[in-house]
């Protein structure tokens, strides 16, 4: 899922400072699962916006809504429900959701309530960790299923770098050296020798270094 966290309140209050009514719009997708922007978090944010504005001696009307997802046109259309009830939307979706609203609603002002951080999973309750960087050219079949792009601080393709000590990363000792883990894991399958194959210099154009990416599935398009 996409993992995110709420922006500092000062930043959000600055965004809405000239509004008299806002719609805090939750997303029931990824950000609900990572407890950053679901209905519960949107309700808390709505309350904090009201309190923050009140403290500044201003009043603001804050209504709450939610969409199944904010990354699909069909769901974005449902924003019509709140037509005329807000000056701006404060979206608690990931950056994708905010972009989708901006793309599709020419006259709607939309602000991000979250900092979108990474693609990850819940390692344990309340803790999320980055697992994939969406590089567009997956190498997990060569690395025992562990991602060197997202999980190696240097995104090395031929690791480890030589700085790892006791299986910990030299950049951050709290983090495992993923290349040590790749080595251990390949070894446990009797495939340790795979480490000796030198990965060629990587073409990063699939990773967004060539501009925004797009996927087209002709078998699914309508026109």
């Amino acid at each position: 899922m996409i993992v995110a966290e709420r922006k500092p309140m000062a930043e959000i209050l600055e965004m809405v400072k000239d509004c008299s009514k806002v719609l805090v719009l939750a997303c029931r997708g990824c950000v609900t699962v990572c407890s950053a922007g679901g209905e519960r978090e949107a309700a808390a944010l709505a309350s904090l916006i009201r309190l923050g504005m009140k403290k500044q001696g201003k009043t603001i009307q804050v209504i709450e809504g939610s969409l199944v997802r904010q990354c699909d046109k069909e769901y974005i259309d449902a924003i019509d429900t709140w037509d005329g009830q807000y000056d701006a939307i404060v979206s608690t979706a990931c950056g994708v959701g905010v972009n989708f609203i901006a793309n599709l609603r020419k006259t709607t002002m939309v602000y991000p309530a979250l900092n979108t951080t990474f693609f990850g999973g819940s390692a344990e309750q309340g803790i999320w960790t980055e697992q994939c960087a969406g590089c567009g050219n997956c190498v997990l079949h060569l690395t025992g299923g562990l991602c060197p792009v997202a999980r190696c601080a240097k995104s090395l393709m031929n690791g480890p770098c030589g700085g790892s000590v006791g299986g910990r990363c030299e950049i951050n000792k709290q983090t495992e050296c993923i290349w040590q883990s790749i080595y251990d894991r390949l070894g446990s399958f009797g495939r340790g020798s795979q480490m000796e194959t030198i990965a060629p210099i990587r073409d990063w154009s699939t990773a967004g270094h060539g501009g925004p990416r797009k996927t087209v599935r002709d078998d699914l398009t309508i026109s």
């Binding site: 519960r40 309700a43 808390a44 309350s47 904090l48 009201r50 309190l51």
Partner: peptide, 11 residues
């Protein structure tokens, strides 16, 4: 008791 419950009390 939720975060929203506590914030509501302040509201």
């Amino acid at each position: 008791v939720q975060v929203t419950t506590l914030l509501q009390a302040f509201e």
